Simulated assay, not measured.
Amino acid sequence: MALTFEADPPAGPSLASGVLSLWADVSNAGGAVGFVPPVGVDDIRPQWLTHLAAMAEGRTRLLVGRDEDGRIAATVFLQRNTHRLMTHWIWAYTVMVHPRHQGKGYGRELMAAAAAHARTFDGVEAIRLTCRGGTGADRFYASCGYKEVGRVPGAIRVAEGDDRDDVIMLLPLL
């Protein structure tokens, strides 16, 4: 069954609970979404509040995918680039699909929905994201049409002695 997508859902306890639970579950399953397991919702909450503030200011937009039970099963945050010479592209952050739904094509659905949503932004011609090397995420994004445009070796320190590349990818929307 396909996900149902909602752009800019109303903020509130239900949204917070759904996103925080998803984020913790993805992180604890080894997902490269800014945390290293073990992590709980209280560890993630400060980052959620940062995203929430950016959403309230209109700098960031949230796209959620809900499963057949109405639970938040996928997210992507889309943030405008504020540099005056780079407003023609946006950032995609915190791309997540719940581990129980992986392998069902939901990640591909999420990325297609994110691209469709980004096309509604005035003047936006591309989506840029970064991903942690060594996870296979770069291959997944490439299969969704993203091109690797840069790589910073060892930029992400997952643990002592475990440094990963920061892979920069771009999806032209035109």
Rank of each mutant, 00 (worst) to 15 (best):
A126N: 11
G103F: 13
M111F: 08
A137W: 02
I90T: 14
A7M: 02
K147L: 09
S17E: 15
D138H: 07
A112H: 05
L20C: 08
H88F: 05
G40T: 15
A54T: 10
T75W: 11
P172D: 09
F77L: 13
H101W: 12
S27A: 15
R100N: 14
L173K: 01
G154M: 13
C144V: 05
V39D: 05
G34R: 06
C131M: 07
I72S: 08
T120P: 04
H117W: 09
G18Y: 08
R151W: 09
D43T: 12
R151C: 10
S21C: 12
A16Q: 15
G31V: 01
S17P: 12
A32T: 00
I44R: 03
G107V: 01
V33N: 05
D25I: 01
L171H: 03
R84T: 14
H117G: 00
R59S: 10
S21T: 15
P37D: 05
Y146I: 00
A11E: 09
L174N: 12
L85P: 03
R119A: 04
K147N: 08
R59C: 06
A56M: 07
R119Y: 06
A159S: 12
G58F: 02
A112R: 11
H98D: 12
H117S: 01
G145F: 00
R139F: 02
A53F: 08
A113V: 04
S14F: 03
P99G: 13
P10Y: 03
W23C: 01
M55R: 14
F5W: 06
E109K: 03
G70E: 08
A137M: 03
G58H: 02
Y106W: 08
H117N: 01
E125A: 08
L3R: 00
V19K: 09
V36C: 05
L173M: 08
L52N: 14
G70K: 04
H83N: 14
P9A: 01
L22H: 11
H101T: 04
C131L: 08
L3W: 01
I127C: 03
G161F: 06
A159Q: 04
H98L: 06
A116M: 03
D163V: 05
R108A: 12
A113Q: 05
S14D: 10
M96P: 11
N81M: 10
D138K: 04
I156D: 10
I90E: 11
D25Q: 07
F77S: 07
H98V: 06
R80Q: 11
G65Y: 00
T60I: 01
D42C: 03
A54V: 05
D165M: 05
V33G: 03
A118F: 02
D25N: 09
L63F: 03
V167D: 08
R61M: 02
G12F: 12
D162E: 12
Q102R: 15
A142R: 13
A159K: 10
L52I: 11
V152D: 14
E57W: 07
W23L: 07
M96E: 07
G150Y: 04
E57F: 06
D67H: 09
M111I: 10
K104Q: 10
G65F: 01
D8I: 00
Y106M: 06
A74C: 06
R108H: 12
M86H: 15
C144F: 09
V33M: 03
S17M: 14
M1H: 09
L129N: 10
A24C: 07
F121P: 10
A2L: 07
D122P: 13
A115D: 07
R61P: 02
R164P: 12
S143V: 01
C144T: 12
M86Q: 15
